Simulated assay, not measured.
Amino acid sequence: MSDTPLRLVIFDVDGTLVDSQADILGAMHLAFSAEGLATPPRDQVLGVVGLSLDVLMPQLAPQADPDTHSRLVQGYKDSYMQLRALSGAAQSSPLYPGARDVLEALQAQPDTLLGVATGKSRRGLDKLIEGHGLHGLFVTQQVADFHPSKPHPAMLHSALSETGVRAEHAVMVGDTSFDMDMAAAAGIAGIGVGWGYHSADRLGAAAHTIESFAALVPLLDSIWSD
């Protein structure tokens, strides 16, 4: 029996595993247009990706009232679902280069578990997993339906609880400051990625950074070599 401790690699989804910005921007435009509001600039929208919708809409539309925020949330959800249905999840939210190979390589390690912690809804994550054929990869799946928005550490606390992995044996891989701040709050090492929606200068809470998926497995080997 292996004396290696069980390890957990938790991934953010949008901007980390998949590039969903086309549908995010398209759905946001449709939602705002339906309310007669100007769509926020691209950088502003991508800057809040990762937050739960009920948290990010007041940031994107600070002058709107709560009822309008609620309609924007629902309008975004409906529009995103419609856009995804047009081309399918795999086409509308493609995996970043190297993502599938790394996920499969990590899954093949007997002492490594995989999880996700995402601002997506349960429905949205299920559609993505189905579209990319990722069934069975993620043993713990934390979604926005059941937790406070990132960077609150509730998602990561639940992931550790569900898997029985200690915080020092887990990492959080993500592209935003929300992911890195969440990891720090949970006592988990954050690995910031350079291909997502937040620039490197916003990932100050990251313990490590990588510029490609190919760098992840060697980094984890280094982190866990002690």
Rank of each mutant, 00 (worst) to 15 (best):
G124N: 04
A144Q: 01
M81N: 11
A159G: 05
M182V: 04
D175I: 04
I191V: 15
D19G: 06
D3W: 10
L95G: 11
K120Q: 05
V48Q: 01
E211L: 05
I129K: 05
T163P: 07
K127Y: 08
V48H: 06
A61G: 07
R100F: 03
D221Y: 11
L30C: 04
D101N: 10
Q59P: 00
K150V: 03
S33N: 09
A27I: 03
L8Y: 14
H208Q: 13
L8G: 12
L37I: 07
A22H: 11
L219F: 11
P97E: 05
S199L: 12
L220E: 09
E211M: 03
G136E: 09
L160H: 02
A154G: 02
A31C: 01
I24K: 07
G98I: 01
Q91Y: 06
H152N: 14
E104G: 00
D221N: 15
F32I: 08
P218Y: 12
P62S: 08
S177Q: 13
A90S: 15
V102E: 03
H208T: 13
A184G: 07
T176W: 06
A31S: 07
G131W: 13
H198V: 14
G124Q: 01
D54Q: 14
I210C: 03
F11V: 12
S161F: 05
A206H: 13
G136L: 02
V217Y: 10
L8A: 12
M81G: 14
Y76I: 04
L17R: 14
D221P: 09
G115V: 08
Q59L: 15
A117L: 04
D14H: 10
P97Y: 10
H169D: 14
L17N: 11
L60T: 00
W195Q: 02
E35A: 04
D67R: 04
I129Y: 04
L103V: 04
A117D: 01
A185T: 04
G131P: 02
P151N: 09
L106S: 03
L203A: 04
H69A: 06
P58T: 01
A99P: 02
G196A: 03
V139D: 01
M57N: 01
G88W: 11
D14V: 00
A85D: 13
F11R: 07
A206C: 15
L30G: 01
L134Q: 06
A200M: 14
P218I: 00
Y76E: 03
H157Y: 00
A159Q: 03
L134M: 12
A200W: 12
D179H: 10
E168Y: 02
M180W: 02
L17G: 13
G196E: 07
Q44D: 08
S177C: 02
P97C: 10
G26A: 06
A27E: 06
K150M: 01
Q107K: 15
G47A: 14
R71W: 15
D221H: 15
Q74P: 08
Q44C: 03
V193L: 08
S33T: 15
W224I: 11
G47T: 15
S33M: 06
L95F: 11
A200L: 13
Q59N: 11
I10K: 09
M182Y: 08
L60C: 05
H147A: 06
A90V: 00
G50N: 07
